[in-house]
Design a protein around this nucleic acid. Structure first.
Lengths: 380, 380
DNA sequence: GTTTAGCACTCGAGTTGAAAGAGTGCTAAA
DNA sequence: TTTAGCACTCTTTCAACTCGAGTGCTAAAC
């Protein structure tokens, strides 16, 4: 374990470096942080911190910058995440006008808010619906030949899709097919639904087989489409204001990687699969001393913050070695979750950003649960 | 009118500058284009072209670059737009897998294709549905308290929206409201529908007024939502590979402007309002000599290309003075159109990009009409 | 009258070298 | 164990300089 002083110095280095983007030297450190030791002592300590792998140098006679290990220690043990101010909370809440009726729309809105609040690119992956069960599937004949297939999942998620069929199909025939499919599939989880299970138990349907098959296929596609994971990123241009992207080459390379179809989506969606394998990432860091309780902070509700930080090399994606992800899991229902978060250079104000993510995520959860819950006349 | 030689030189300057991004000098011009005059002559001609406003200099002893007027002349009179190659056509067509059932999804796909094909940011504005009439509105009770409102517009466009109502509302009551609204509004154009017209003629509905009002309001919102114009841009990061954005400051400023909510959307959506005021923009440019008819080019179908180019100062948006827009109008139905196109620095390969846009737009039109048309059993 | 060769001039881009400054590591004394 | 002192290293900055591409003008050639 690091000595108290080493911790203090590491923390100071990270804080300064995050602020200035310049390697920080022993003199500056003593001055800015009123350490009551000399710069020479700090120098010695820093040298040891470097040997231990917490700090790096850009060249022999430069100041130090945190290494990945340094950042990790900072985040796990030294970070104090404070709630954001009430005006800021209000500001975020105001972004959600309650008009949105789709889960995905609300999540995307959160991404926008997050990006604006942090001035970093923000992103999300849509919820995993695989283990969700199908509640209803409705065939709505819009006009002869056009059918809207509405898929309703158990937590009240609705997806729909328009298909075309031969006009010979009548409303009555459609209803029969609809009822049969529904009887067959209601309550089954999405990942267990196959084309075969959709088609099963279709007996004595007074519809030509080719048309029936087509409808069954479309129904199957509609269901499968509901479990698609979507990735969405917004505000990538904000990165350009970060000094680490002053070089256009770097910026371009980064943006290209980030925009690579499915790359990050796939990577992020893995995280929650082997959730247990990951270290808790939460700082015990007893700062709660600063509990002047200026706010009815959302943590009161016994929620544990659930953010996750991935730093530099911890990100196993080529081209993102110098970046960090900070994400949090939002909840659509107990079983259904997705992730929302930001990307940026490793050098970022972890505390501020984490507190923003925490609150946005909290608000998002609330909005979604408002939406998916039964209507409560006591509201409004 | 410019002399033949001046035209030739202007064209050569634009072509070279587009290629190299360097001011082009008289020597280089003679060499690259095998003009059978000396560089001195070219110099004199260029000097005159500068006096006439077609060319500019970056400093006293530099080569020339095209001015806005130069680009305009180039596009209006000198440009030869050739169809893209058949492999490229195939490539574009393959992007549309026929699986998409939503107009907006198809348009967005086109934007993606366009951006990839041109390596520029591509964008769209969604169709104007204001003058479209409401064909149907359906209330689908998903479960007690949750209703899916489905709005069907005349060319087969479908939008929907989930709302919540008090659970006391029964299926039957809902059907009555639904029928009344439908009787009232079917065939009315969207811009003529007001909250009042939605509420009108509601008599003897066996539903508490507060609930009725709520439903009417939600129905109104759903209809209005259908006419929202959406703007979408993709691939902005591609700009960074353009030398004019080598400077991060410039790039950042541009991207910020571009991402400003509604700015471009508003600007673009104006274009088609005063359509007649705009010059035809089409080169008469008799190049069709190269009609080795290697392709069953889409122009055969008597369509006139409908692209529009806005160059530099012609764009009345602060911060985009050094850019060009190239857009084309796509068609959802005879009356309903939107725009799709790209943005980039003024210096771009107009011919290549225009031909890409033409073809993508053509394909888009086809896809949409396939979708909105009645089902034809002869297909597939 | 038009075209061209020749030449002086201009300006930007790139190179070099010196000086300044920030920071380190080490040594020896406190 | 801490600190002052100092030599050393490396980056950054800036001015001076060179190089080269390109122009504009003049006078001769066609």
């Amino acid at each position: 374990m690091l000595s108290e002083r080493k911790k203090q110095i590491l923390k100071a280095v990270v804080n300064d470096y995050v602020l200035t983007a310049e390697p920080v030297g022993s003199n500056a450190l003593v001055k800015r942080h009123k350490l009551d030791v000399s710069s020479a002592t700090v120098r010695n300590e820093m040298s040891e911190l470097e040997d231990l792998g917490y700090l790096d140098k850009t060249h022999t006679s430069s100041g130090r910058i945190p290494s990945d290990k340094g950042y990790r220690a900072y985040i796990d043990y030294l970070l104090e995440v404070k709630p954001i101010s009430i005006p800021e909370q209000k500001k975020i809440e105001n972004f959600f006008d309650g008009q949105m009726s789709e889960v995905l729309a609300i999540i995307k809105r959160s991404v926008k808010v997050l990006s604006e609040q942090t001035d970093f690119p923000a992103m999300m992956i849509s919820p995993h619906y695989k283990e969700t069960s199908l509640e209803q599937i409705k065939f709505l004949m819009i006009e002869p030949g056009k059918i809207l297939i509405v898929v309703v999942l158990s937590p009240g998620i609705i997806k729909d899709r328009l298909i075309r069929v031969p006009t010979v199909l009548s409303q009555t025939q459609l209803s029969i097919i609809n009822k049969m499919i529904e009887r067959n599939l209601t309550g089954v989880t999405l990942d267990q639904i196959t084309l075969i299970s959709v088609s099963a138990a279709m007996e004595d349907v007074p519809v030509p087989e080719s048309i029936l098959n087509q409808i069954l296929f479309e129904a199957y596609i509609s269901i499968k489409q509901a479990e698609n994971i979507e990735f969405y990123i917004e505000g990538t241009h904000r990165l350009l204001s970060q000094p680490e992207f002053n070089d256009v080459e770097t910026a371009q390379q980064f943006l290209q990687t980030i925009h690579q179809e499915g790359l990050i989506a796939g990577y992020m969606s893995e995280w929650d699969e082997h959730k247990k394998m990951l270290s808790p990432q939460m700082s015990e860091s007893g700062p709660q001393s600063g509990s002047d309780s200026t706010s009815d902070y959302y943590l009161e509700s016994a929620e544990k913050p659930s953010y996750m930080v991935r730093i530099g090399q911890e990100i196993a994606l080529e081209g993102l070695e110098d970046c960090s992800f900070i994400t949090a899991a939002y909840k659509v229902s107990d079983k259904i979750t997705g992730r929302i978060g930001i990307v940026g250079p490793k050098r970022m104000s972890y505390d501020k950003i984490i507190s923003q993510i925490n609150f946005v995520n909290h608000t998002l959860d609330k909005e979604i649960s408002d939406l998916t819950q039964e209507y409560d006349p006591e509201e409004d």
